[in-house]
Amino acid sequence: MATHADEPPVIRVRGLVNRFGDQTVHEGLDLDVRPGEILGVVGGSGTGKSVLMRSIIGLQTPAEGDITVLGQPVTGGETTQNQELTRQWGVLFQGGALFSGLTVAENIEVPLREYFRLTGQLMDEIAAYKVAMVGLPPEAGPKYPSELSGGMKKRAALARALALDPKLLFLDEPTAGLDPIAADGFDTLIRTLAETMGLTVFLITHDLDTLHAICDRVAVIAEKRIIASGTVAELSRFDHPWVQEYFSGPRGRAAAIAQHHAPLEVG
């Protein structure tokens, strides 16, 4: 998917400040996410990647700063009440956060029921094709989350995030805890879905392979702000100790080589 640099950004963060007690997590953080791009957000543990995502989706009220998502201002707790906005995004939490009392298919139907008056049959059909789209076998539909493996839970949670055909998808470490094959499969899936459904994706990850495989742009959080953003190639030339360590360490090089020799058949 080509990104549209000239269009207004889907997510616009200016001067974000987040504090917990006297500990400052973000100090004047700026970030733009352009329409149609997959933006990877990386940073060391505890640099506030998840806090940034929670601020953008309104689960965390920032101390200062302006956040605009799809042209609408985000103002902390009230945002989750703004159904016009919440129905245009899907969120995949790190642990999946599937409702444990509902089956996978019923989980997918929850947002459909909340926002629309569809017939039961159409809802069941939508749930069924979403299950298939994220690469789950049909048997997974009537299963409860506790009966699924970690990778299947992630896929099921992705199906729920995609239930409303959102424009914007938030993914918090989608490949964490998956084996490399499952992680590759998940990367491919996200890339394919992003292309077919025209999604803009905000992706938090630690996974260098994911960055190389699917991200159009990468933003690095360090020193309480975004210190750099650009393509992986641009960032690996960026002169900052953490960025250099990250992209040029043994794992970073391995991921770059793997990508160079065996590009995924996507994008």
Partner: peptide, 10 residues
């Protein structure tokens, strides 16, 4: 491609 029948509940 994703049209496969799938049960919603047990």
């Amino acid at each position: 491609a994703a049209d496969r029948p799938c049960e919603v509940r047990p």
